[in-house]
Amino acid sequence: MKSDLVKIVDLKKHYPIRSGVLGRTLGYVRAVDGVSFEIRRGESFGLVGESGCGKTTLGKTILRLMDPTAGRIIYDDTDVTKVSGRGLRKYRRAVQIVFQDPFSSMDPRQTVASILTEVMHVNGIAEGQRALEKAIDLLELVGLNESHLFRYPHEFSGGQRQRVCIARALSTDPEFVVLDEPTSSLDVSVQAQLLKLLKDLQKKLDLTYLFISHNMAVVRHLCDRVGVMYLAKLVELSDKKDLFLEPLHPYTQALLSAVPEPDPTVRREGVVVKGEPPSPANPPSGCRFHPRCAYAFEKCPSVVPELMEVNNKRLVACFLYDEGHVRETG
């Protein structure tokens, strides 16, 4: 088995809720509330969940774009949770991010050349003519060319802009790239091209991906292992194959049933999730999914389920798989 590149240990990110003139803290939004997993070198780790479940916050916290409230981030056997200055810089060279919205993730007033070389300049990778040459290489790497160098972001289509974003991410020669829903704002046909590009790049440059998405179909296409988040907690973690074949957590089941099936002859049993996701500021007691869960029983509202290993090293946080409980589904 490959070694772990990134290891997250009980990571928490809480935002204070302030109110009034004096700004007293009334409570906390728990965006990420005790998440642990590891990403192996060279793999694509998918992180799925509804919007607002904290997956983007988790991604940004891992990259140290936000400081975690608690927990640890270990990168390449080094604890980077608290590094700063030179250490943080070094870490940020090695890890990069591609955002969901290619329209807001680039300064509209910078040309592509400036966007790409600024990163190299700041990180001392290349200067002047060399930086430009490298920028051209990067553009060609992502399927663009030299002619795009002095254009502004608004002159590109959505897919092209996302390619520029990828090029920017690659300009520091990173090992680890967080892809925060990089395709969700694009047309389906463009999505496919971009996914192919990402796959090729991973192979060519030996990259490790954290792929954040709410789109199970895309995750299925790109990822090796998948973690499922619900309301700031990881509820299931397993290999892609197992997950799609036999989802364990009721929430995962619901997510998968929402994936459009390309073959109209296949009929699948729908699992319907009731209601809206609750507010992360005031999460339900016990299992956070219990108010919406079709299988919830008396234990669910009172005790918080931990991730436990079932069936061949798969992890799931659900009492349905607790010893002594017999699953009764019809």
Binding site: I97, F99, Q100, S105, E118, N123
Partner: peptide
């Protein structure tokens, strides 16, 4: 995001 990005850089 580009501000986050700029800080991240």
């Amino acid at each position: 995001d580009y501000i986050t990005m700029a800080r991240g850089k």
